[in-house]
Nucleic acid binder design. Structure first.
Lengths: 202, 202
DNA sequence: CTGCGTTAGTATCGATTCGAAACTATCCTC
DNA sequence: GAGGATAGTTTCGAATCGATACTAACGCAG
């Protein structure tokens, strides 16, 4: 199978699937914002992190977020540790429309894949994402499960959390492990080969 | 693996990979137009077909195409069979920048996949695309290789082409089998022998 | 404590894209 | 030939885009 055809397929599928926006009067980008802040862990719920995730500029991200804020989908809280920074949290209104769910077509399509294929498929996607992001000098945005910064063995000893993040130097709650993180660095199970030159971050 | 995580991965990869636009002063959408007309077969090189492919409206497609035309990347020819219709052809200027190539990062990423995985990966993508497109009532856009309309066994008898399209009721040249088509209907699994290596127009 | 470079976020600019709707021209069917 | 469907264009307002300039807060060196 032609690699170029695969690349075209990825772009095409992503484009067709993200063109759902219409429901609830939100655009595709606005849906992406809501999904991001629903999935991002506490280190990553900032405008800058979303800009990096979405592959856009901080300025554009700021506009879209402000728009959603005035529509009552997001609330902002200044960070206490760093008073330049801002934390964004979904409102009940946002979580309500997220559960009745959007982009369901793509989820159903993924669900319809044979169960034996799904794992390999996700691995291939994550791998391609890692390589593309690396070539552009952008963070690949993964979860703790395969992150190099994850520390701990899952056994909770006294006075110590079962897991911790070696980058943020903070303990991690169990339910935080599934959140998407801007500090993700591909670690253990995946060995991404990066053999190509020409990585020019814009 | 969570189906939702797969869906997010697909969107994320597509977005990050298509954000390359800048080179040559073209936007991501404009690159998509050029790639489309380079890959589309002769039944599909129209504004309407591109609009369907890209998941947008005919109006928007018309604007983008007109823009590229004035920049000298496309030339238009009225169809002789249907005088409402318009055929778009890449200029030498367009093919020149397509060979020095863009979105190469994604192609390289696909190329870096283990060869045993590539086929299954492409199959899963095509499958998801088929399902998503079907749910939205949009054409899935595939190639003859797995299209239900493909007729013929590949053996060229005298006075008859080896393959033909049952939908367009026209014979097909061998090098046309790899073109993307708006009339694609998913049929048999991909089992067409292909010996036309290296004939890619790009 | 004072500079000073860096980072987070916002504001503004023009260009592009978007969906929707109205419109012309052509085709097709009855 | 009439009526309806299709191909394509045009126009409108809204949203996004990248780029740039800007404010405010951080953090480090001295």
């Amino acid at each position: 199978m032609d690699s170029r055809a695969i690349a075209e397929l990825v772009l095409h599928l992503g484009r067709i699937a993200s063109g759902e926006g219409l429901v609830e009067g939100l655009t595709a980008v606005q849906w992406a914002v809501l999904r991001y802040f629903a999935r991002a862990n506490r280190f990553s719920r900032t405008p800058s992190a979303f800009a990096a995730f979405h592959g856009t500029t901080r300025g554009t991200a700021s506009q879209t977020i402000k728009n959603l804020e005035t529509q009552g989908y997001l609330t902002r809280m200044r960070s206490e540790a760093d008073r330049r920074s801002v934390r964004l949290v979904l409102t009940d209104k946002a979580t309500a429309i997220l559960v009745n769910d959007l982009f369901e077509a793509l989820v159903r399509a993924a669900d319809a894949l044979p169960s034996g294929v799904r794992g390999h498929f996700a691995n291939a996607l994550q791998r391609m994402l890692g390589q593309v992001a690396w070539e552009r000098g952008k963070p690949p945005f993964g979860t703790c499960a395969s992150c190099k910064h994850l520390e701990g063995d899952g056994c909770s000893r006294e006075g110590q959390a079962p897991y911790a993040c070696g980058f943020a130097r903070e303990p991690l709650l169990l339910e935080e492990l599934d959140g998407v993180c801007i500090n993700f660095v591909p670690g253990k199970p995946m060995t991404v080969k990066r053999s190509v030159a020409g990585a020019a971050p814009r």
